[in-house]
Amino acid sequence: MRRTHPLVTILAMFTMAFLYLPLMAVAVFSVNATKYGLVWRGFTLDWYLKLFHNEVILNAAWNTLVLAVVSTIVSTILGTVLAIGMDRFPWSKRVNTFLDMVLHLPVVIPDIILAAALVVAFGLLRMVSSMFEPGLLNMIIGHITFQIAFVALVVRSRLVSLGQEIEEAARDLFASTGYLLRRVTLPLLLPGIVAGGMLAFTLSLDDFVISFFTAGPESVTLPLYIFAAVRRGVTPQIHALSTLVLLITVILVVGTERFSRRR
């Protein structure tokens, strides 16, 4: 049995503490009874209760959810169809390179560039239609744009690993194109689609930059709300809100892990 050098263990523990201390501090101060400062004044859940009476926060939570759900549904459908289109047809090498490049663009470029491009594009579209005023629609469009790429990449890797034997067998048994897709390809792809969808959902919840650039006054999401509030000064209520968001992230991550490991 190889041993771990004590220095490695110490450094690893230090790194873990480095990652988790700030987050734990947020959780600890979210149950601290004092409103100002960081001195411990006893345990309370008041800040959590107050969250549920705060109209602005409830509204932001609702916006976050609508944004994540709508963009995830659209991007999962578009991304899955795109992945099938890319992998299951005899495209020439040049077409494949082009498709690959477009698909990787949102993954590699810094998100602030995509955000800037969207601001300018929506600004110009606004001359045509008032639909593109900064707001939820713009945010949904922005989120779908980067989500599609991630969903398509995840689903495509599943398609590649599936191989072609099963679909060939279905064709040999006289399956029509529609039947093949409905009863063979899509069911086989389902784990990939769910994984892609969960990734898209988490990305949407996690996103700040795209939302920040495309949001309007009516479409504040939780990350935007926390950002604005923190710049005015941190309060226990913000800690409570952040702790809840953290917990939801933990549940989502652990759920996704379980799901992808079971398959």
Partner: peptide
């Protein structure tokens, strides 16, 4: 090949048109 490409385009177009409209085109506008 031709019918395959026709069907393939049907699959590619929704996602690719979206990416062209909201990623590539805005990038060029930028």
């Amino acid at each position: 090949t031709r019918s395959l490409i026709k069907r393939g385009l049907l699959f590619l177009s929704p996602g690719m048109l979206w990416l062209l409209a909201f990623l590539v085109l805005p990038g060029l506008v930028l």
